[in-house]
């Protein structure tokens, strides 16, 4: 199930512009790794390179290696579609499919891939919704459109949709930034439960959130606007927030800049 991610020498470009420069890090399985840093430092770009979504952007390309256990995601002959089935993603804004019901949204990954047995589908949907702590709220209206849910519920629906295809890794790009504190709490509790089964990487602008949910924290920074973003340091979350080894990290988390 959960897999280790080993990144080495990874740079990502938008056309001629280098967005992130030479990043190497290891993401431990069955743990939550948080990415923090100022806007534009490449956290989201780096996250999107981990399931080959970066290249979906016109002009996006990547150099370097991302090892998922012993497979290189950027090796020759690797199908990005297969990578994305292994490494799931939850986006900043909840984006349920508007034409589909709640049930169909959760089943979407399996149905659209054509990899399911009809008899199992209802079970998988129920298990995924329970896994996303949404089952009790929606079990009576599975046939209603997903866009009728509240923002927080929609985001949990998207998480249910992502875990329904049983990925090994779950990437979350600021999953709570469009949500109120109650919904944020619900998602954070959920992240705590999900890390038993998945490797989780979360990008957040909220440093308290990083401190609350993550086991390890990576701090990204950029030298100046227009310069590529770099990984400054990656360490246990406690160390980062109490006694970071780099001065820039301390400045950032104590609010002295950024």
């Amino acid at each position: 199930m959960a897999k280790r991610i080993d990144v080495s020498g990874l740079s990502a470009y938008y056309g001629a512009h280098k967005a992130i420069d030479d990043i190497s890090m290891t993401v431990e399985p069955r743990s939550v790794t948080a990415f923090i840093g100022p806007s534009g430092c490449g956290k989201s770009t780096f996250l999107r390179t981990l399931n080959r979504m970066h290249e979906v952007t016109p002009g996006g390309r990547v150099e370097g290696k991302v090892m998922l256990d012993d497979e290189n995601l950027y090796g020759s002959g690797v199908d990005p579609v297969a990578v994305r089935r292994t490494v799931g993603m939850v986006f900043q804004r909840p984006n349920p499919f508007p034409t589909m019901s709640i049930f169909d949204n959760v089943a979407a990954g399996l149905r659209l891939n054509g990899t399911y047995k009809k008899s199992e589908l209802a079970d998988i949907v129920e298990r995924s919704l329970k896994g996303a702590n949404l089952w009790n709220e929606v079990k009576d209206r599975l046939n209603k459109p997903g866009s009728g849910l509240s923002g927080g519920q929609q985001q949990r629906l998207c998480i249910a949709r992502a875990i329904a295809v049983e990925p090994d890794v779950l990437l979350m790009d600021e999953p709570c930034s469009a949500l109120d504190p109650i919904s944020t709490l619900a998602i954070e509790d959920l992240i705590g439960e999900l890390k038993e089964r998945f490797t989780i990487v979360i990008v957040t602008h909220n440093m308290q959130q990083a401190a609350r949910v993550s086991d390890r924290t990576a701090f990204f920074n950029l030298a100046a606007v227009g310069q590529p973003g770099k990984l400054i340091e990656l360490d246990d979350t406690e160390r980062i927030f109490s006694n970071p080894s780099v001065q820039a990290t301390e400045d950032y988390i104590s609010g002295r800049f950024g």
């Binding site: 979504m53 994305r84 292994t86 799931g88 499919f97 508007p98 659209l112 998207c158 295809v165």
Partner: peptide, 10 residues
């Protein structure tokens, strides 16, 4: 929506 679908491995 396109990204959500692609990210599901579709």
């Amino acid at each position: 929506l396109r990204e959500a679908s692609l990210a599901l491995g579709v």
